[in-house]
Design a protein around this nucleic acid. Sequence first.
DNA 1: CATTTTTCAATCAAAAACAATCAATACCAA
DNA 2: TTGGTATTGATTGTTTTTGATTGAAAAATG
Lengths: 249, 249
Amino acid sequence: MLTPERHQVILSLLQDRKTVKMKELVEATNASESTIRRDLSFLEENKKLRRVHGGASIKSAASEELSLQEKKTVHLAEKQAIAKYAASLVREGDSIFLDAGSTTYEMIPFLAQKNILVVTNGLSHLETLTSSAIETYVIGGRIKRKTRAVIGAHAVQSLKHYRFDKSFLGINGVHPKEGFTTPDPEEAVVKNTALQLSGETFILADASKLNEVTFAKVAEVQDAVIISDAPDDLLPPFKELTEVKVVTS
Amino acid sequence: MLTPERHQVILSLLQDRKTVKMKELVEATNASESTIRRDLSFLEENKKLRRVHGGASIKSAASEELSLQEKKTVHLAEKQAIAKYAASLVREGDSIFLDAGSTTYEMIPFLAQKNILVVTNGLSHLETLTSSAIETYVIGGRIKRKTRAVIGAHAVQSLKHYRFDKSFLGINGVHPKEGFTTPDPEEAVVKNTALQLSGETFILADASKLNEVTFAKVAEVQDAVIISDAPDDLLPPFKELTEVKVVTS
DNA sequence: CATTTTTCAATCAAAAACAATCAATACCAA
DNA sequence: TTGGTATTGATTGTTTTTGATTGAAAAATG
């Protein structure tokens, strides 16, 4: 396992659990304790985490979101499997909304060369979309630096200029009772608006998102189709409420 | 396998996996370790990836910023002089429109850390604006691939959500009779709209733009203040019509 | 508070990966 | 073809990374 990969594993484990023990890191990476110690020193040096006796803990305020770059590498294979399936649902001639986020980003390679129109609020998508010869529209509004997404009231206004055959949304939490949730209310309202404007909406949620709940509600579970790689035992509560597409990675 | 083909294989593997080991690359390309090493060195040299012990990893967002900064432009010194002066006109608390284009781009370093709000249609500006801690809004609309600008009817609609203290526009032609002109009518209407919505409008035009005329009209010369590095003998016809700020580079 | 246990930083030797070099081969233009 | 150039893979010695070991420091225990 390469050093940057190890660092990512450490950071994403931390993100999940808030604190992590030395032993867990050694297991997760198959590296020695010494190596992990060196990694932790390095990452602390770079302000990515705080070392504590026996392991490490996240640095900033709890539940802060991962930067986009960090998100891109965690659960990558799962995300790509989900993205590939999602992209297969897009037909020639479709107009689609592509939400900001790492999973939806992975859809783009599978959309290349299709004769479609894409509207997005994800600034990180734009370069890849346009260089894939896809007709691309961006919505207007305030830029959230951390996720490089366009959000806010203007974004919602701007979205309403369009209608979509299909929307593809990333999400942070999917819960049978609490519905789809995301940490930032301003992002939530954008996602909800896209959903309202779409014929069909697909929620791309890897297994780690299921039964999670975060701050801001986007919609009820029954308002969209879920695409996930979750194992069978997690799914029954969701299958009662909506269509669930299961992919394997 | 040819060298460019090998490079392509390496980059696309990296794109998929975010990190890749030497051994995997040797297998994927049937080349020797030495050759792969040379490839990696070359690709790192060209900022396409980051070498790490044991293989390579994709470049982080932070280092991508650099390559943007390094972009070379024609008439750079002139543009920077114009940009520096233009930026000096921006006051704390201002809301400004920053047009797409290379001259306006050069304003950003001089705006950094100011407490202002910037609305732009230039996608290339966004990364630098946000990482300069400037509150940034993008307008919505279709993306013109060539200039990475947001244009079209939706862009105009989206612009109308805002009002500006000042607008800073790039331009292709400035002519006493024909006014300000630019080749793309869809860009012209965006510039014109920004002008309408601004208290003051400044046209950033290096000497090569003076007395030029291109296809689509943006506004009359008297509708905006011109900032230019043009020599004195070119200026009198313009000074009769509007205010002209001359900078030296 | 003394003792035991755990975790830590520092050190070191082995292993892996490295850059530098060189000879062999492929390629190209005269 | 021939002479020259570029690319390649093998080999070399060097550097970096790694995991084990150590005694010191910090926490846990009684």
